[in-house]
């Protein structure tokens, strides 16, 4: 059974009559040209995996005003996520899709955010991501990353994939970079440092890698990629 949840009016909007969409738009317009905002508001980006990479990517995209987001993850927020993921103690036990939806609605309640709480397999990649022009791969396990990237590139011929690969530990932050590896594939990370017992994922490098992914997405949308 696949659940589709549409964005509902968040509590924050009901309780905060002081900010309007026009004010948020004006704040953006003071810093960037109007055409840029319009491109971002029209853009659609899917994020597969809502852990350290995916939650940080989604927050960056929401802050940047990317208008249409699809958030996909099967998992619940766990105490082991708090060291690097966007979630907070009140989110423990919630589906990551719902927790992240709530966080994004507090950043910009006028975004169109779809969520799917489901495990991604090579069998449902087309149904989930077909038609999405940009998909961020933000999974944790290497076999799942390879499955998703391979399936997206072979099944979704118009989709550009922005993947995260190698960001564990406390190595040099400058080793994390963005590379175009294939015609429709960008890979961010150091390509080598994997999470292992005693050498886990730390917030800074995960956020840096997520920042690389989100930045590449914005470049692709704006047309400077």
């Amino acid at each position: 059974m696949i659940h589709m949840q549409k964005a509902e009016k968040p509590e924050i909007e009901k309780n905060s009559p002081h900010i309007t969409k026009e004010e948020l738009d004006r704040a953006f317009d003071e810093r960037f040209p109007v055409w840029m905002k319009e491109k971002l508001q029209k853009a659609s980006v899917a994020v597969a995996g809502l852990g350290g990479l995916g939650s940080n990517i989604a927050v960056s995209l929401a802050r940047s005003g990317v208008g249409h987001l699809l958030l996909v993850d099967f998992d619940l927020v766990d105490v082991t996520n708090l060291n690097r993921q966007m979630y907070m103690i009140p989110h423990l036990g919630m589906p990551k899709t719902q927790a992240l939806h709530d966080i994004l609605m507090q950043i910009n309640p006028w975004l169109d955010i779809q969520t799917r709480q489901i495990m991604v397999t090579s069998e449902n990649v087309l149904e989930l991501f077909g038609g999405w022009p940009i998909v961020c791969e933000a999974f944790d396990r290497p076999d799942q990353k390879a499955m998703l990237v391979g399936s997206l590139l072979s099944q979704c011929p118009d989709t550009i994939v922005v993947s995260g690969n190698g960001m564990a530990g406390l190595g040099d932050a400058n080793d994390i970079r963005t590379q175009q590896k294939l015609r429709r594939l960008y890979v961010c990370g150091d390509d080598t440092t994997e999470s292992a017992p005693g050498a886990g994922l730390m917030a800074p490098r995960v956020a840096i890698c997520a920042g690389h992914q989100a930045n590449k997405v914005l470049q692709l949308i704006i047309g400077e990629g």
Partner: peptide
């Protein structure tokens, strides 16, 4: 090349191949 075809796809002279290796963490 889909994963299930790796065992049935032969490499030939002149082929150009990219192998991307993924590591854990996200």
């Amino acid at each position: 090349i889909p994963r299930e075809s790796l065992n049935s796809t032969l490499l030939e002279d002149g082929d150009s191949v990219e192998v991307l290796r993924f590591v854990g963490g996200g």
